[in-house]
Amino acid sequence: MLSALFGASTLELLSFNPPGWGATLARGLLASLQIAFGAYGLGLLIGMGGAYGKLYGGPVVRDLLEVYTTVVRAVPELVLILLLYYAGTDLINRLLDVFGYAPIDINGLVAGIGVLAFVQGAYATEVLRGAILGIPQGQIEAARAYGMPPGTMLRRITVPAMLPFAIPGMANLWLIATKDTALLAIVGFGELTQATRQAAGATKAYFTFFMAANILYLAVTLLSNVVLGRVERWSRRGMPATAGAGR
C-alpha cells in the first residue's frame, strides 16, 4: 500500500534536476514567502494606521474603519481576492486611461501582496487596537504630560508597551498570511500551491506533490512557531509572570 502511495518513481519526481520538479516547488515556496512577508509588513502598517484611526480618529474615520474591518472579516478571502484582483487592476488601468497613460500589466507579485495586505490590515487593525487599549492609561498620560510629540510617543511608549499584548495575535496573523498565499493559486499566481498543481497535473503524481507541498507549509509554520515563541518571550521581558505563562 505504502509503495503505491509513494512509489520510488514518484519520489524521484521531487528531485531538483530537470526531470524532477523540486526546483519548481522551491521557486514556488520562495514566491509564497515573498508574498507573505510583503503582505504581512504592509498589513502591519495598515493595521497600525487603522488602530490609531479607530482609537483617536474623528467620528467619520472611525465609522469608515468599522465598515472596513467588519466587511473584510465577514467576506471570504477568496471572494475578496477575486474582487480586488480584478477590480484593483481594472481601476488602476482606468485611472491611467483617464490621465492619458497607456494601460500597464500589473505584476502578479505586487497585486498579490496588495490584496492580501488589504485583508491582513483589517485583522491587524483589531489586534493592534486591542493591544493599545491594553496599555495602562497612565503611561500614555505620563508621556503626554512630558510634552512628547506623538511620533516620539508612538516610538518610545506605545509600541514597546503594547508589544506583549499584540504579539500573540500578530503571530497568529503571520501564520494566516503564510497559509492565505495558497489562495492566490485561484487567480493563477505562481506560488507554491499553483506550482504544486502544475507539477501534479503534468506528472499525474497528485498525492506525492500535494503531500510534499503540505510538508513544506508545515515546515514554515513550525519554524515560525519557534521564532515567534522567542519573540514573544523577548517582548514579555521585565513583565510579571501571568497565570497563563506556564502553558
Binding site: 503505491a4 502511495l5 501564520l175 497559509k179 492565505d180 498565499t181 495558497a182 489562495l183 493559486a185 485561484i186 500551491t193 504544486t196 498543481r197 501534479a200 499525474k204 497528485y206 498525492f207 500535494f210 503531500m211 507541498a213 503540505n214 507549509y217 508545515l218 509554520t221 513550525l222
Partner: peptide
C-alpha cells in the same frame, strides 16, 4: 499548519487518484 486549500486538493486529487 497547512492551508485548507491544499488539504482539500490532497484529499480530492491525491487520494481520489489513488
Amino acid at each position: 499548519g497547512t492551508p485548507l486549500l491544499l488539504q482539500l486538493w490532497l484529499l480530492y486529487y491525491g487520494l481520489g487518484s489513488l
